[in-house]
Design a protein around this nucleic acid. Structure first.
Lengths: 165, 165
DNA sequence: TACAATAAATGCACTAACGCATAGGAATTT
DNA sequence: AAATTCCTATGCGTTAGTGCATTTATTGTA
């Protein structure tokens, strides 16, 4: 193999390793922000329950079965979870206009507010942190993240659910 | 207020908002990586149990009480969690050399291996993703992330524990 | 109309985690 | 030596979540 090429490849490997470490460090910082944004909500609902609200916020009302499947839970298990959430005022059951044997789950305004608060808290803290940077630095950061998001690809919702997001 | 200054501040606000959105998007991608790295481990241990192993990996053996406090759990609750983890072969109890009333918790090699696998999986996937970028892009990414990590500050371990990390 | 298929809820059994109160052994103080 | 403090473990009760099997209501089909 050509020595010059080998040296270049070696350089690329180092760069990758360094970038990986920087990214891991940054991801810890971002995870901290995410965690803090959620922690308050966890006084009111459990993580699985919060997931339900996030899913409903994203998709609108869903049938019991469809929702259970999205949550990766057996339908019977899920029925009970919904019982608890109804009791807490986070969601409501309503019979479907399509079929009387179907039950649609709606997030209540209280439920939507909970998710909105978390989202807003996250956005606010991020904005606060970024404001410590110059506009130039921010622009650099934005383009770096855009690049990352592009190569990282879409994150299927199911995967975020592993962490309860 | 001077119009030129006002225009500049407006520009800064836009930049911040755009950067915030880019960061939020990227953080979802990073969360996906983190979630995938953990999902396998969750077949073996629960999230709280995984936390214990992460903490022990970071700090070495700890007393029951200290560990319980780090986990934000009541000590009695925690004693039972350790019972289960001992049963599963993830940790071991050992009497402290300092005092016979103290009990130290060690991660077993099996326990350390579990954490290592997760860490390695995360690093590998990140590295794989980054390798799609040119060294120049990677270098840009690294410096942008270093900047972010600097302004975001340290993330206390307790906060990551909210998400089970 | 009788029968099969679908959707949700219930009965039952289980595990993990949580907290409070308390017991037991070990170390420290008086 | 006795009393107190410290550290862990246990008894007891509770909640959330999980899964399997079954029931009930509704819809679709033979």
């Amino acid at each position: 193999m050509n020595e010059g090429v080998a040296a270049m490849e070696q350089g690329a490997i180092w760069t990758n390793a360094l970038t990986t470490e920087s990214t891991l460090t940054a991801s810890r910082a971002l995870l901290g922000i995410v965690a803090r944004s959620i922690s308050n909500a966890l006084n009111d609902v459990t993580m699985p329950q919060f997931r339900v609200l996030v899913v409903l916020s994203g998709s609108g009302p869903l049938r019991m079965g469809a929702l259970a499947e999205k949550m990766g839970a057996v339908q019977s298990t899920f029925s009970r979870t919904i019982d608890r959430m109804v009791k807490g005022g986070w969601v409501e059951r309503a019979s479907s206009p399509d079929s009387r044997r179907e039950v649609l789950i709606f997030a209540t305004s209280q439920g939507r507010a909970l998710v909105d608060e978390v989202t807003e808290r996250r956005r606010a803290e991020l904005s606060r942190i970024l404001s410590a940077l110059s506009p130039e630095e921010q622009a650099q950061l934005a383009s770096a993240f855009d690049v990352l998001a592009r190569v990282a690809g879409e994150t299927p919702a199911e995967e975020l659910l592993i962490l309860g997001l």
